[in-house]
Simulated scan of single mutants.
Amino acid sequence: MDQKEFYIILHKYRQGTATPEEIAFLEAYYDLFEVEENVLDKMDEVAKAQLKNIIKVGLSEQIAAEERKSSSKVIWIKRWAAAAVALLLIGVASYLFTQQNTGPTNKQEEQVTKLDIPPGGNKAVLTLADGSSIILNDKENGLITQDAGAEIVKTKDGQIVYRSKQAAQNAALNMISTPRGGQYKLTLSDGTKVWLNASSSIKFPTVFTGTERKVEITGEAYFEVAKNKNMPFKVSSAHQMIEVLGTHFNINTYDDESADKTTLIEGSVKIYKLNQQGKEENISTILKPGQQAILTSQAKNFKVSDADEEAAVAWKNGYFKFNRDNIQTIMRQVSRWYNVDVEYRGKISEDLFVGKINRSENVSEVLRILQLSKINTTIKGDKIIITN
């Protein structure tokens, strides 16, 4: 089969006129990038790398994970994956047909390549006990200040470390908050490490005293809690409270998400549901490593399931991972990390997306995933317009 015939089948699939035999052929082409490199001859290197990243890495990992979970889903997942591969390749085939016949005509795509938005970075504001604020990304490395028994130091790798100098009789609360387009890492006075995602905050005492270590968060944070069996560590958010002794976990509690998600990586946690007054209800659950607890505002209890640990902490490790996510879920992450607003015009796509991309890329590389699935994106200033 030559390239022209291959493109014709892809075009028919896009139009919904492909025969069952042709669809089966596309399913068999799952390993396209390894066995038919000539199909990619007319693509530029950026497009090749992006497609390989989305299809070869992202989809194959998803299929393998689903096959391990349940043999009853293998056929469905494989068919879905092959269809997704075909869908993404259709974008390439359509582009090549257009190039061969009429030359570049997609003005929206041209505009996206000309206008770009850089990724976020280490940005945060420290609010001290007296209410004064310090913009951390403007500060030089070294001692920043002292507050209520603790030295606050900025290390050479850009994180904030609290060092207890003396026992504080009255705990003073500090807060570190990140804007859209920001993230930050800090180490609390007990040695607990915290990573804050964009549009997030953590309120904590400069020095932990008493019988417990308690912090409050908004947005999303990853914790590596220092072990201390005599002082449980508690993380409170708007709808729940997590109690641990020493463990690694991620909590996503953004207001614009449909649910709070707590993902346990190591150790054990107990999660309590809070009422509107912030008091513990008689509803709780215990997580084991590899599990995720989901709590919606309407739910009477937690929903516990196996977690996609990699996806849950991808942001902390420097990349996005989309695991059958819809466009709105993806664009909420994009909005927070790239500090942009998102506007939808027309019917919102119901497509699901799988793939990985580095968070250090400009926003155009993330939008390319959508463009390959025939979703138009336009950047206007600090706004991304999505049309389908």
Results as ranks from 00 to 15, higher is better:
residue 247 T to L: 04
residue 235 V to P: 08
residue 183 Q to P: 11
residue 241 M to T: 09
residue 225 V to F: 05
residue 235 V to W: 06
residue 170 N to P: 07
residue 225 V to Y: 02
residue 194 V to N: 10
residue 216 E to I: 00
residue 234 K to A: 08
residue 191 G to N: 07
residue 183 Q to M: 13
residue 182 G to Y: 06
residue 221 A to Q: 00
residue 244 V to G: 06
residue 170 N to D: 14
residue 177 S to K: 14
residue 187 T to D: 09
residue 221 A to K: 00
residue 200 S to A: 05
residue 233 F to Y: 11
residue 184 Y to Q: 12
residue 190 D to E: 08
residue 239 H to L: 10
residue 214 K to H: 14
residue 232 P to G: 08
residue 187 T to E: 15
residue 196 L to M: 12
residue 181 G to I: 07
residue 209 T to F: 05
residue 172 A to Q: 15
residue 186 L to E: 15
residue 212 E to Y: 05
residue 196 L to V: 09
residue 200 S to E: 02
residue 196 L to T: 10
residue 173 L to W: 13
residue 228 N to L: 04
residue 210 G to E: 07
residue 201 S to F: 01
residue 246 G to P: 07
residue 200 S to V: 00
residue 232 P to E: 07
residue 201 S to H: 04
residue 196 L to A: 08
residue 212 E to M: 11
residue 242 I to S: 05
residue 176 I to V: 15
residue 212 E to N: 13
residue 238 A to I: 03
residue 207 V to Q: 09
residue 206 T to C: 03
residue 198 A to N: 03
residue 170 N to L: 12
residue 205 P to L: 05
residue 214 K to T: 13
residue 217 I to Q: 04
residue 217 I to K: 04
residue 218 T to E: 00
residue 229 K to E: 09
residue 219 G to M: 01
residue 185 K to Y: 14
residue 172 A to L: 12
residue 198 A to C: 08
residue 177 S to E: 15
residue 174 N to E: 10
residue 229 K to F: 00
residue 217 I to Y: 02
residue 234 K to P: 04
residue 186 L to S: 14
residue 193 K to A: 11
residue 211 T to M: 10
residue 189 S to V: 02
residue 211 T to Y: 09
residue 208 F to P: 05
residue 187 T to R: 13
